[in-house]
Amino acid sequence: MGTRGDLVRALNAGADAGRTGDPVTACPYPSGDLRRSEWVRGYAKTARFADEQHDQERAADQGVYRKCWSPAWHRLK
């Protein structure tokens, strides 16, 4: 287990790992540890997965912008 500060540090470390493209298996915390859950949560918030990256690149190529997770697509003018 960890204190609140440990959990925040684990969340931030996971976010950093997600931004840099590290594999999710790089988590330094053992199974069953709350810090592991926070690390994975931070990782998932920032990691770009292959299908998301492809969708974003395709939308950029077509000049389309998606504002939220709504099904509505808007054209940039």
Rank of each mutant, 00 (worst) to 15 (best):
W69L: 02
D6I: 04
Y29Q: 08
H74C: 07
E38I: 03
G18M: 13
V40L: 15
M1T: 12
R35S: 15
P71H: 00
A17W: 10
K67N: 07
L76S: 13
L76E: 13
Y29M: 06
R41S: 14
V64S: 03
S31M: 05
A59N: 14
G18V: 13
R35D: 11
L11Q: 14
E52I: 01
A60L: 08
M1S: 13
A10D: 14
C68I: 00
A60E: 07
K45I: 08
R66F: 10
R36P: 07
E52Y: 00
F49S: 02
T3V: 02
P30Y: 01
Q62G: 01
R66G: 03
R19K: 12
G21L: 06
W73D: 11
D55W: 00
T25N: 09
Q56K: 03
R4P: 09
R66L: 04
L34W: 10
P28W: 07
P28H: 07
Y43Q: 03
C27S: 14
T46R: 14
R9V: 12
D16A: 15
G21Y: 06
G32Q: 07
E52Q: 06
C27E: 06
V24M: 11
R75E: 12
A17V: 13
G32Y: 04
V40I: 15
L7F: 07
E38K: 15
L76Y: 05
V40D: 02
D16S: 15
H74A: 11
Y65N: 05
A10T: 13
A44P: 00
D22M: 11
A17C: 13
G2F: 08
E38Q: 11
M1Q: 12
P30W: 00
W73R: 15
A44W: 01
R58M: 04
G18T: 13
R36M: 11
V64I: 15
L11Y: 13
K45H: 09
R35H: 08
P30E: 06
E57G: 00
Y43R: 08
L7A: 14
D22I: 02
W73L: 15
Q62F: 00
D61F: 00
R66Y: 09
A10V: 14
C68A: 03
Y29N: 03
H54W: 01
R58F: 00
G14K: 05
P30C: 02
P23S: 14
W69H: 02
T46M: 11
D51Y: 02
Y43K: 06
V24G: 00
K77N: 04
D22T: 05
N12K: 15
T25A: 14
Y29L: 10
D61W: 00
R9F: 09
W73C: 08
Q56S: 04
A50T: 10
R58C: 01
R4Y: 05
V24I: 15
A50F: 01
R35K: 15
C68S: 10
R48C: 01
C27G: 05
A26E: 13
A26I: 04
R19T: 03
D51S: 06
L7M: 15
A13V: 07
V8N: 14
S37A: 12
D51W: 04
K45M: 11
G63K: 02
S37G: 12
